[in-house]
Design a protein around this nucleic acid. Structure first.
Length: 665
DNA sequence: AGCACGCCGACT
DNA sequence: GTCGGCGTGCTC
């Protein structure tokens, strides 16, 4: 104990509760430390939210975040001192802590794992700048365009809605863009208008987008609607200093619009008025890091905690959003109007991929406008097979499928990129390869011959094009890589429908509809959209003007099969005895059933060998989520305490709502 | 994860 | 007698 000060009254000792930045489930709780007098000040001292170094048993040190500071101690064991305040900035805001804790609990994971996604790494220089800067008052909001505004009063009434956005593109002023203006999707303008509602009330709005292409459009729309000073981008593609600068900008607490990738759902916003998830069906919103929480689920937890308005929006309705509508948790809304003519077309049965009606639509449109052709795969020939025995040609190194990037180029592995110059068939030793399917490059070549004199542009993962002018040209794009054309496309051809739907997987039809709706949205008003080789409810989702009946039918089917999102799932992976132990513990949940266990494929957990691990899928009602997560956490903890060989995979891993096992169904 | 504590076999 | 094997438990 420190000696009493000169005044005779000792400073009261305070205690900090700290969440330690560790992946270990055993350490996923608050640890209590004494605040030494040297770190007791409000400025630069131990206050809630700051990053600290704390001692752990032995002479180990850990970093962590101060969650709270209290006058009395709760822990009656030995208490160590906080070692150091790493940074005086309170980067862990109370509402983000509450969110991380709740999200981790729901997923049977660690709060620190969530915080690692939520809080970017510290950048001392950026931080110094931020601490030193004076913040001038925000300029007034730009005049509101009084033209029709979607969903007035949404934020004030704290509504929760599933919004189906009609397509179409529009031009907005964009000082940073070439020509001072840009064409973007109308969805972005509508969402910017909704976010402005929150900012006008002095609150923050957060929008989560799947990728940087959508983020660019929303940034442009928000900058026009709010002014650049009120738009904060938490872009994963930014360098760390920029990310940290944007993060600190959120901490200012100003009424701003915050946009970013899936991690933006955790952005600090103490007065959150509106939370938006754009294209909530996009697989990119699924977090690949433990505890694998989908941005939509994190948004639902956050909305409940913050009491904000909530918008799940897209050009198509996801089955998850539809479930929430049918439950009465979300209201259905449709925003915008987009008039296109959608023409279903049968595939020509001579094997030619491009139906005559698609050619006709393209020929009519190409005189004045660009034409978009959406294809399933990049390259020349997406697949190759043996010309003698018909076996699929595979990479000799990794077993991946061989393909051809351009006409006459050497076959190469589509997974590892290795060239297979002197390929021989593994089964019959044949040397002749034949092409399977047509990729973007080959379709572009064929269209180029069919439309002599018309420029052809390929847009795919390798050739990225964000935007194009409105001159006539053919744009061949893979799904998700479609550029925005100034004024919209004169025609949109959706060519590989049959190939897409031939894939196996629970979400295949839903994902195809989403990708077609996204491409359709890029058409100019009045344009023709040709959907080739697709029939039934999937086709009606695109030929009709709403995808909701399709989503409803999807959900009904999943209910009948007891598949997600009608139920929640937990995939249990690990050593057979650990899996058996976890399943035995879960068996006490009444409405829970189990698929498996079956031997898990190699590499299911990093470094695992074929057959070494098992996997089972537990299915249970949403109402049992908390109970199942609690049991799961207990089993993970018990498994973590068992010793294992160094470098060996974790004995037990439980992942909630994992889409992967259903990909092949 | 690491690291201490603790209770049984081969050694000076 | 005691050095050390690593199974078990804990980290404020």
């Amino acid at each position: 104990m420190a000696a009493p000060s000169a005044e005779g009254a000792a400073e009261p000792v305070r205690f900090a509760r700290v969440v330690v930045d560790s992946r270990l489930p055993q350490l996923d709780r608050l640890f209590e430390y004494r605040v030494p007098p040297s770190l007791a000040g409000e400025r630069g001292g131990v206050v809630p939210g700051v990053r600290v170094r704390v001692p752990l048993r032995g002479d180990r040190q850990a970093t962590g975040w101060v969650v709270e500071v209290a006058d009395a101690r709760e822990w009656d064991g030995e208490v160590a001192d906080v070692e150091q305040v790493v940074s005086p900035v309170p980067v862990l805001q109370p509402e983000v802590w509450a969110l991380a804790r709740a999200v981790a609990d729901r997923a049977a994971g660690g709060a620190a794992d969530v915080l690692r996604v939520a809080i970017p790494g510290r950048q001392a220089r950026v931080e110094k700048q931020w601490l030193a800067q004076e913040r001038p008052p925000l300029p007034p909001l730009p005049e509101r365009d009084v033209a029709e505004q979607p969903l007035p009063g949404l934020v004030e009434a704290r509504r929760r809605v599933a919004v189906e956005c009609a397509g179409g593109v529009a031009q907005v002023d964009a000082p940073g863009e070439p020509g001072g203006a840009a064409w973007i999707g109308r969805w972005a303008i509508d969402l910017a208008s909704l976010m402005r509602q929150a900012v006008e009330r002095g609150e923050q709005a957060i929008a989560v987008v799947p990728d940087h292409r959508d983020q660019r459009q929303l940034r442009i729309a928000l900058t026009a609607a709010l002014g650049a000073e009120r738009v904060v981008e938490l872009d994963a593609r930014q360098k760390n200093p920029e990310r940290y600068r944007a993060f600190l900008r959120c901490l200012d607490g100003d009424p701003v619009a915050i946009i970013g990738p899936r991690s933006a759902v955790y952005a600090p916003a103490a007065r959150l008025g509106l939370l938006v998830v754009w294209e909530d069906g996009d697989p990119l919103l699924s977090e690949p890091l433990a505890p694998w929480v989908h941005a939509r689920d994190a948004a639902l937890v956050r909305q409940a905690q913050a009491g904000s308005a909530l918008v799940l929006a897209g050009h198509s309705r996801s089955s998850e959003a539809e479930r929430l509508v049918e439950l009465g948790f979300l209201e259905h809304e449709r925003v915008g109007a987009h008039r296109v003519r959608v023409l279903p077309a049968a595939l020509a049965d001579d094997g030619r991929r491009i139906p005559a009606s698609a050619f006709a639509a393209a020929r009519t449109a190409i005189a004045e406008r660009p034409v978009l052709v959406q294809v399933a795969r990049p390259g020349h020939a997406p697949g190759l097979r043996c010309g003698d025995c018909g076996a699929r040609a595979r990479c000799t190194t990794c077993g991946g499928p061989l393909g051809q990037r351009s006409r006459g180029s050497a076959p190469a592995c589509r997974l590892c990129g290795r060239l297979a110059a002197s390929w021989r068939c593994q089964s019959c030793r044949g040397q002749r390869l034949v092409e399977v399917g047509r990729g973007s490059v080959r379709i572009a070549e064929e269209l180029g011959r069919a439309f002599p004199g018309v420029p052809v542009v390929v847009a795919d993962g390798e050739h990225e094009r964000l935007a194009l002018d409105g001159k006539p040209r053919l744009v061949v794009a893979t799904r998700g890589a479609e550029p925005i054309a100034d004024g919209g496309y004169g025609a949109v051809l959706l060519l590989d429908g049959d190939a897409l739907l031939a894939l196996e997987g629970l979400r295949v039809a839903e994902e195809a509809v989403r990708q077609w709706a996204t491409a359709r949205a890029l058409a100019a008003d009045g344009a023709a959209v040709v959907l080739a080789g697709v029939a039934g409810t999937v086709a009606t989702a695109i030929t009709g003007d709403t995808t909701v009946p399709f989503a409803r039918a999807e959900l009904a089917e999943r209910r009948a099969l007891r598949f997600p999102p009608a139920v929640r799932t937990a995939s249990v992976v690990g050593h057979p005895d650990a899996v058996a132990d976890a399943l035995a513990a879960l068996a006490e949940v009444e409405h829970l059933d189990v698929l498996g266990p079956v031997p898990a494929p190699a590499g299911i957990v990093k470094g695992s060998r074929e057959g070494e691990l098992e996997r089972a899928i537990a299915r249970f009602p949403y109402a049992d989520g908390a109970r199942v997560a609690g049991i799961a956490r207990g089993r993970v903890l018990a498994a973590a305490a068992r010793p294992r060989k160094p470098g060996a995979p974790a004995r037990l891993r439980i992942r909630f709502d994992d889409p992967e096992p259903f990909d092949g169904l």
